[in-house]
Structures are given as C-alpha cells and as structure tokens.
Design a binder for these strands. Structure first.
Lengths: 210, 210
DNA sequence: ACCTGAACACCGTTCAAGT
DNA sequence: ACCTGAACACCGTTCAAGT
C-alpha cells in the first residue's frame, strides 16, 4: 500500500492514462488475434483500452495512422521471429528452410496481423517513419541470412533473397486464403519445407561445409 | 423508335432492372478500378447502379456475398488472361516466363480487384459455389501449363506449379504493397522476368525442343 | 417478383467543453 | 496536456409498404 504517487528517480508516466498510445496498439493487436481484422474498428480499440472513442485522436491522426503503428509492431515481431529462427537453425537441413519455416509459422500464428502488415494499401508517401523503418528491415535481413550461408556477392544474394521472400510470402498468403486447402492437401509447414528444399537447388554451395 | 417491348424469340430480361445482379457486380468492379477497395461500400455500388441502397439485398444475401461474386468475376478475368498468355507465348524464352509476366501484369492492371480476390478472409464453408469453382481453377491451369512444356509427371508438375504460383503471387503482392520500391528498384515486370528465369533452372528439360 | 424509404445500430471524425 | 460527450455524415442490415 505504498500508494501510487510518483516515486522519485523514475521518469513520470508520459500521459494521463499511463501510455495510452502503446496501450491502443496493444489493444488493437489483441482484437486482431482474438476477433480478426473485420472487428478492428477505432471505437472497439478505444473501448478495449477503456477510453472514450475520441481519445485515440490525441495520439494518432486517424485510423490509418493507428493501423500503421500496429503494422509496425507486427514487423517488429516478425523480425524477432526471424532472428530466433536464424539462431536455432540446427535441425533444418539448410538455412533457407529455417527461414521458410519461420515465415510460414509466423503467418499461421498471427494470420490477421500478417494480413494487416502486408495487405492494406499502405506505404504511400506520408506513411509513418516507424512503419517504413520496420517494414524496410525485412528484406535486408533475408539478404544477410542468405549471404551468411553462401559465398554470394551482394547482388547475387539479393536475387536469391527476393525469390526466397516472394515464394514464402506467396505460399503464406495463398495458405491464409485457403487456396491451398483442397482435400488431402499438405499443411503449410510441409509445403514450406518442400518448396525451400526445391529452391535450395538453385543456391550456390555453402561457404564452408561443417 | 421501335419501342423496347419484349421482342419475340428473345428471352425476356429476368429482372425489372434488366439484370441487376450482373449490373451490381460490374458497378463494383468499376468502383474498384476507379476508386479502390476503400470506396467499395454496398451503398456506393447501389448508387452507381442507380438503385436504392436496399435493392442489392434482393440479389445477394449480404455484402460478403456481393464481394464473393466480384472476386469470382476477377478470377474469371485472370483465367482469360492466363489463357491468352499461353497462346501468345512466342516472345518469352520459356513458358514459365509467359505465365509469370501474365500474372504480374494482371496484378498491376487490376490492383484492387487482385487484392479483393486474394486477400479478404473468404473461402470459409458457405462461400458461393461460383467463387469456389472459379478460384479453384487457377492452380490446375498452372499445373496444365507446366505439364504441356515439360515431360513431368502429374506429381512433379504439381510441385513445380506450386513454387511458380507462390513465387509470382508473393512477388505481385509485395510489389502492390510497395515493398519492392526502394530507390533504383526494378519494375515488377523485370523482376518477374528474372525470377522466372532463375526458377527455370530447377525445371526439367522441355519435352520436345523446337 | 422486384424495389423503395424509413429505421436502427454501428462507424470515423470533429469540436467545444471539461480536468 | 490529455480526455470526454454530443454531433454529423456515412455504412450494413431489416422490414413494412409500394408497383
């Protein structure tokens, strides 16, 4: 019961609510995970954060700006995932497969967030720098991963990374659309595994065999 | 001034309006092409078709059902495109490239329609049979295209077709998201050309060289 | 058989007013 | 500096009523 007065030496909470901006982003993410994209209205986000429906306008210019922040958070999460996959890439046969499986599993674990990240007609001039930065980090990360595992030049690695990214992205998108769900179809993980194996054949040799 | 009375020998127009159902689908397509996905409301569609905002409910159960019909029309158009590309595949180096370029150019020519087709969380049980049929025709068409140009078994062709489809789909999606638009980036057509060329290396030999 | 107009609950956005 | 409540225009959906 020490009370909740501002304790000295701690930076005071920057807003009335605590940090409403961040709370709104988190509320939006929960709605996405629990109820899907269709349920993601500004008013629902405000409701879940426990503020009036007009409150978000003190932190975001409009709904699109909030969605931008949510998408940026999504890209941050995906970067974490990719990073972890690169670390734990002991089991898969090659690094491409580690990446492919991580991409597929992220899409499967966060389908609505994944859709929001890649699907709204965003990335116009005027998109928040935060989103531009986080979303722009994905491709370089893939390129770096490819270079680490091959003796590729920067240019060669860029081409391979683009094929790899496109393929996994398309596979994930089609799977989320249920386009790959005919009777007896293989699950996304299996497809990702097989497809990256096939792609491995166009890759140059590993830089240094173990 | 022969009047517009029903002429004998011609099937009478099935609805008051002419064929309102089809008119609504066409109105929706125009809105998509001219104003984009965000402008596609049921009421706007009705407005453009010149009927009251409640009229669509006599032809579609709800908005989702109308969007399903629009998506089905999109898949029909894409099938036509793919078919034409297969016919005129004289210039490109191989059949994969003909397909890849057609996929990319369709996405570029109809960005909002393409997004609607592949991006809404549709294809649940209860999706209209019309949409299931048209959307389900794409993958077999790609498989057939691959088989025609190679001596592949059905199973082998399915794998190659899946990689091809995923890759082109991902490339198109990422391009529409402006994810492939860094300064000095190549246009989508060029990327599609290069990527399919790279994929060609994993393809078996052509069945019969010219 | 097909269409309309009024009605309802919801949404995005604005703005004067509150602390 | 931050938040609220009322207001406005818009949307999806329903339904009695019109032809």
């Amino acid at each position: 019961m020490a009370g909740k007065k501002k304790s000295p030496g701690v930076t005071p909470p920057p807003y009335h609510h605590g940090d409403l901006r961040q709370a709104l982003v988190q509320a939006a993410v929960s709605i996405l995970e629990e109820e899907g994209l269709a349920a993601l209205s500004l008013r629902a986000v405000a409701r879940r954060a426990g503020v009036s429906h007009a409150a978000p306008y003190h932190h975001f210019q409009d709904k699109e700006a909030l969605l931008d922040a949510v998408a940026a958070e999504g890209f941050r999460l995906q970067m974490l995932d990719m990073h972890n996959a690169a670390q734990n890439a002991a089991a898969p046969i090659n690094g491409l497969q580690a990446f492919g499986l991580s991409y597929a599993s992220f899409a499967r674990k966060h389908p609505s967030l994944f859709r929001l990240m890649y699907t709204h007609e965003r990335f116009t001039p005027g998109t928040s720098p935060e989103l531009v930065q986080w979303s722009g980090a994905i491709y370089p990360q893939i390129i770096a991963g490819v270079r680490e595992r091959t003796g590729c030049s920067e240019e060669e690695a860029s081409s391979i990374a683009l094929v790899l990214w496109s393929t996994m992205h398309g596979l994930a998108m089609l799977a989320l659309d249920n386009q790959l769900s005919w009777p007896g179809a293989k699950p996304l993980d299996t497809l990702a595994f097989e497809v990256t194996e096939l792609l491995g054949r166009v890759m140059p040799e590993r830089k240094s065999p173990p």
